[in-house]
Design a protein around this nucleic acid. Structure first.
Lengths: 217, 217
DNA sequence: ATGCCGGTGATTGGATCCAATGCAAGTGCC
DNA sequence: GGCACTTGCATTGGATCCAATCACCGGCAT
C-alpha cells in the first residue's frame, strides 16, 4: 500500500508552502509562473493549479489577469486569526486528550523541554509548533485539525517576527503556560487543558495587539 | 469601477458551487472533466482549476489520477462542523453587532418573519441562511466570515435533508431562538446574542447527532 | 513640470495535443 | 467456477502553443 503516486501539482504545492513557511519567500513577494516553473521543474499548468490551491489556503493572493503574491496580513487580520485559534484549538485539544497515552505524553513533555531550552528564533518556531502538534496528534484527522494547521501556516511569518522581539519575561510566561498545559494533559483534565490553552493563545493575541510595528500599512 | 473582468475559472467555480448547493449535483456524484467542460462551456483547464479550488473549500473530493466527486460528509464530520460553527459564529456575530443600524435591524426582523412563515424546505434553507447572513453583514470581510460561509456551504445538503425531517415542534424552537436572537440584537446585547446563537447551533447539533440515518456509511 | 494617452513588452489565461494512469472487461489457467 | 493476469479504453495530468490582459514607458498637450 505504498504512497498513491503524487501529482505534480501536489508536489509544487508542498514545495511552495515550504518556501513560504521557511521564509525564503516573503509576504508581498511576487510569484511569477514561469520563474516558478523553472525553479521547481514543472510546466506552468501545475504551477497555476498550485497557486490556486495555496490561494485557497490563504498563503498566496491571486489577482485575475495580473499575478500572484505571497500573502501578507494586516495587524487586524492577524489578531482575528488569533481569536479564531482561541476558539478552535481548545476544541481540538479536547478531541485529542482522551487518545493520548503514556508514551505520547512523555514525548510531549520532551518537546516542551526542547522549546524551553531553545534560544534560536527559527528553531523556536519549529519546536513550538511541533510541541502543540503533538498535543493534537490523537485528534481525528478532519476539518478542525486541517483548519488549525492552516491558521498556523498563514501566521507563521508573523509569529517568527513576533518571537524575535520577545524578551526573557515573555519566554518565561510561555514556559509556564506550556508547563501548566502538560500538567493538565497528564492528569487527563481536559477542562483545565482547554482553559490553559485558550489563555495561552489569548495572552499572545493581546501581546500581538501591541506589536503594531510588525505590520506594514 | 466596473467588475474586474472575471476569469473563466472563477465563473466555473461559481457555477459548480451553485449546482452543488442547489442539490442538482448530489454528494457522491462523479464529476467528469470533459462532461463539465461541455456543460459549462469551457475547456478542461479552467474546469480542473475550479475543481482544485472547490476541493480546497471542501465541496469536492479529488483523488489523484482518478477523478473528482461531490463531497459527502459522515455523521461525525458533520457534527464536528457544527461544533466549529458553535464557536465561530458567535464570534462573527459579536463583530457584526456594533455595526448594525436601525435599517439593518428592521431588515433582519423581516427576514426572521419570512423564515417563520416558510413551509417549503428548499425555500426555508435559503431564507434561514439569508436571515443569519444579515445578522453577520456588518462584520468586516475577512477570514471568519469567509470560513463561516464555507461551513454553511459544505453542510448545506445535510441541512436540507435534516429540515425535511423536522416537525412543528422543531420549527417552533427555531422560531423562538430566532426571536430571542433578534431581540438581543435590537437591544445591542452582544453577550446575550452570542449566547442565544451558540445555543441555537448547539441544539441543532444535538438534534443532528440523533439523525444518524441521514448519512450513509 | 505634470497629467493624460497610446503603444509595446512581459505575463497571465485558455485551448489543444499528447502521455500516463487506472479501471473494467475478457481471457486463460488452475 | 473462481481467480489472476492482460489488454484496451475512458479519463486524468502535463506541456506547448496562442490569445487576452495588464503594466510600464515615452510622447504629447496643457
Amino acid at each position: 500500500m505504498g504512497e498513491t503516486k503524487e501529482t505534480s501539482t501536489g508536489r509544487v504545492v508542498e514545495q511552495l508552502r515550504a518556501l513560504i513557511l521557511d521564509g525564503e519567500l516573503l509576504p508581498g513577494e511576487r510569484l511569477r509562473q514561469e520563474e516558478l516553473a523553472d525553479r521547481l521543474g514543472a510546466s506552468r499548468v501545475p504551477i497555476r493549479e498550485a497557486l490556486r490551491v495555496l490561494a485557497g489556503q490563504g498563503l498566496v493572493r491571486l489577482v485575475a489577469n495580473t499575478g500572484a503574491w505571497v500573502s501578507s496580513l494586516t495587524h487586524d487580520e492577524c489578531v482575528d486569526l488569533y481569536r479564531v485559534r482561541e476558539r478552535l484549538e481548545p476544541l481540538l485539544l479536547e478531541q485529542s486528550l482522551p487518545g493520548l497515552g503514556r508514551d505520547e505524553l512523555q514525548e510531549i513533555d520532551a518537546a516542551r523541554r526542547a522549546v524551553d531550552e531553545c534560544r534560536d528564533v527559527r528553531e523556536f518556531i519549529a519546536l513550538d509548533r511541533h510541541f502543540h502538534s503533538l498535543t493534537y496528534q490523537a485528534a481525528p484527522d478532519g476539518y478542525i485539525k486541517h483548519e488549525v494547521g492552516q491558521l498556523w501556516d498563514v501566521t507563521q511569518y508573523y509569529r517568527r517576527r513576533f518571537t524575535e522581539m520577545q524578551d526573557d519575561r515573555g519566554r518565561a510566561l510561555i514556559a509556564s503556560e506550556h508547563g501548566l498545559l502538560v500538567d493538565a494533559l497528564m492528569r487527563g483534565d481536559s477542562v483545565a487543558a482547554a482553559a490553559v490553552l485558550e489563555m495561552h493563545i489569548r495572552r499572545t493575541r493581546l501581546a500581538l495587539q501591541h506589536a503594531v510595528h510588525l505590520f506594514d500599512g
